[in-house]
């Protein structure tokens, strides 16, 4: 172990973690506004990655240019899922039922992807995928840097939307208290549908970066969803800031542990961190017991 290895691990943690943060933000936004635990978020990331793959293979569309198509497409996919499955859930068992329903949606999408693309691993390609530049002794992969910038831009846009627009006020109010939001005239149902769409749309960017930095098939979604759930529970269910910090923090911790001790402990470190935090603070780092906040 040397300082270069540590710096490199810290860099990887920060860059990769930002992409996880982006994907987890979508998940926590959906939970915060709708009380829905979207177990399909992992497979939706993979679906988005396959969409980028299809655009590249069949129409030779660059991965980043393809986002102009995949982001709106995934938004529509989110709206359709919300209308067909999620919007029908009501009553006190809604959250528990959402786990079953979104798991079923996940299985449907997984089956469709396996039939369409087979179970063989694929990886997204581009001239920048395997290139890097160096600052001192630390190498920065173009695709990781691009992922970091993309995540930063999209998360900043999300924050701008939340804190500078009328729709953002509706979302923040709905995040805090749906009944009170309805009583000031906010159409919570409409806000929920759009938030689900946004929560799924961010998987387009996350899926593209993930697919360019990892080989994947449909079953990769199980590893992804376990990581994403860990991130939003650690950050505090419904807390956007918590999801971002936990996303970056967990990958950072995992990479550091991998360098300092052993890569074997890298994945385990997420869950150890989660257990320790939940023992001290059951609502997660930024979660609140009485109300969720943006």
């Amino acid at each position: 172990m040397n300082s270069t290895a540590l710096l490199s691990a810290a860099k990887d943690g920060l860059l990769t973690g930002s992409v996880y943060a982006l994907m987890a933000t979508g998940l926590t936004l959906i939970f915060g506004v709708m009380d829905i635990i979207n177990l399909a978020q992992g497979i939706l990331v993979i679906l988005a990655a396959y969409l980028s793959y299809a655009l590249q293979i069949h129409w030779h569309i660059d991965l980043f240019v393809g986002l102009l198509i995949t982001i709106p497409t995934m938004f529509v996919v989110g709206i359709v899922i919300e209308r067909l499955f999620i919007g029908r859930l009501k009553g006190p068992e809604k959250t528990a039922m959402s786990i079953l329903v979104t798991y079923a949606v996940s299985l449907l999408i997984e089956g469709a992807l396996n039939m369409t693309f087979s179970v063989n691993d694929v990886q997204l390609q581009g001239w920048y995928v395997n290139r890097s530049f160096a600052i001192g002794s630390v190498h920065f992969g173009y695709i990781y840097m691009a992922g970091f910038v993309l995540a930063a831009v999209l998360l900043s846009s999300l924050y701008f939307m939340l804190y500078r627009t009328q729709f953002g006020v509706s979302v923040r109010a709905s995040l805090a208290d749906q009944t009170s939001a309805a009583l000031v005239g906010i159409d919570v149902k409409r806000v929920s549908t759009i938030c689900f769409g946004i929560g799924v749309a961010v998987t387009a960017a996350g899926g593209m970066i993930y697919g360019a930095t990892n080989s994947f098939n449909a079953s990769t979604s199980y590893d992804l969803i376990s990581r994403l759930l860990t991130i939003i529970v650690l950050g505090g269910m419904g807390s956007l800031g918590g999801a971002m910090l936990a996303g970056v923090g967990m990958v950072f911790i995992g990479d550091m542990v991998g360098v300092i001790w052993s890569p074997v402990w890298s994945s385990m470190s997420y869950f150890i961190a989660l257990t320790v935090v939940l023992l001290i603070r059951p609502q997660g780092l930024f979660g609140k017991q009485s109300a969720r906040v943006a």
């Binding site: 923040r172 109010a173 805090a176 208290d177 009944t179 009170s180 009583l183 009485s290 109300a291 906040v293 943006a294």
Partner: peptide, 13 residues
Amino acid sequence: VQVPQNHSLFREM
């Protein structure tokens, strides 16, 4: 317009 029984202000705003 209704003011509900429980405090309905958005605490973080």
